[in-house]
Simulated assay, not measured.
Amino acid sequence: MTTAPTRPPGTAEHTVSAVPSRLGALLRLRELPVTVALIALVTITTVVNPLFLSPQGVKDLLLNATIVIILAAGQALVIITRNVDLSVGSVLGLVAFGTGTLFVTVPGIPIVVVFLVGMLLGALLGAINGLLVTVAKVPALVITLGTLYIYRGLNNAWAGGTQYFAGDRPDAFGALSVDTVLGFPLITLIAIVVVVIVAVYLAGTRAGRDLYAIGSDPDAAKLFGIPVSRRVFLAFLTNGVLAGLAGVLYASRFNSVGATTGSGLELAVVAAAVVGGVAIFGGSGSVVGAAMGALLLTTITSALTALRVDKFWQEAIVGVLILSAIIIDRIASVRTARKLRISEARNV
């Protein structure tokens, strides 16, 4: 009796079997749907309107997405821990108006100092959110809804009817949104650096990986010795820092800042993170996906405007994308839980 020789793992048969598994892993990427949707949207719009991808058109797309990308990166950290921060628009507004105030009241102030002050103010406001959530043990949705109005009220009281315009800032500061490197606006390059740093933190550090564990099951995370309160506080603090950075860049990007700056922006930021594959229930997602979600949502607005589609449909499409992302995430969670139960039953 003879037996068929066993092939070593490095043979062609093993290589062929590895291909479907790699393809399956690619198809399971949470960022894949938003990437495909973005490519399809840009392709269709360019066919209808060839000027959409002109050099100036691409620059405008990147500039429109930059602020939301930075905010979505910070929001992803918070949502992954099974929380949410609705105050980021108000934080941005306070910092943006504060930036204009600094340039007017302190002539000649170095731009680097303005960035540091803006990020420190954002850190303070983010720390307040983090402390209230972790110490008071009140849901973040309630806390940040309250601070949204508090921070907005402070900005209204501070700004009143005052507005600062592009002429009130140094030319070098305004140039951050004008000058480009290899076709990328400088503020967009700052956003890319932010995304890379946060992505490395989430994937390459223990503290970053702890955020996923907390979002998946906070009680289990505590049992494993993870300092849940400290990690959640740092997530809110970092989110505040990035909102402060976005506020300074907002003052560079737009012609005026005032009491209403940033109003309603928090909804777009949460939508970008969710559409980008960050699970609203916590525990999964990536900052790269959140950035892609921000780029998709801002591109939708630009594309539908270029196609002369009514603004109502723009908002309706964003709503459909949010619902689709939540439903898909829920279906994936149910399937994963079912496979886990089947696996455990077989092992028994």
Rank of each mutant, 00 (worst) to 15 (best):
T45R: 08
N49A: 03
Q56V: 15
T11D: 07
R28M: 10
L26R: 09
V58D: 00
A18C: 04
R22M: 11
T2E: 06
T46Q: 11
L61A: 02
E31H: 15
V34C: 12
A12G: 11
A37Q: 07
A25T: 10
S54Y: 07
T45Y: 10
R28C: 08
H14V: 08
I39E: 04
D60W: 14
P20H: 07
F52D: 03
P20A: 08
E31S: 08
S17R: 11
V36P: 05
T2G: 01
L23Y: 14
N49P: 12
T6D: 05
I39S: 11
L26F: 15
T3E: 10
P50A: 00
T11Q: 11
R30P: 14
T6P: 05
T6V: 03
V19G: 03
G57Y: 05
V16R: 07
R22C: 02
E31P: 07
L26G: 14
T11W: 13
A4K: 06
S54I: 02
P33A: 09
V16C: 03
L41C: 12
P20N: 08
H14L: 04
F52P: 00
T11I: 08
T35K: 07
T6M: 07
L53Q: 01
M1F: 15
F52Q: 01
P50F: 00
I44H: 02
A18H: 13
H14Y: 10
F52W: 02
G24S: 09
S17Q: 08
T15F: 02
V16L: 05
G10W: 09
P20G: 06
P20K: 02
V42P: 00
L32N: 08
D60M: 13
I39G: 08
T6Q: 04
L23M: 11
S17K: 07
I44F: 11
A4I: 06
A18S: 15
S21G: 08
A40V: 15
I39L: 14
V47H: 13
E13N: 12
A12D: 07
L32V: 13
P50H: 00
T35A: 14
L41F: 14
V47K: 14
V48Y: 02
V48D: 00
P33H: 15
V16H: 04
T3F: 12
A25H: 10
P8M: 07
P5H: 05
D60A: 14
R30C: 05
P5V: 04
A4P: 04
A25I: 03
L53T: 13
R22T: 12
R30W: 15
S17H: 13
T2Y: 05
T15C: 00
S21M: 12
L53H: 01
A12F: 13
R30A: 07
V42W: 07
A4R: 05
T15I: 01
L32I: 14
M1Q: 03
L61T: 00
V36S: 01
P20R: 04
R22L: 12
I44S: 02
V16M: 04
T15A: 05
S21H: 13
A18K: 14
E13K: 14
L51M: 06
G24I: 12
S54Q: 11
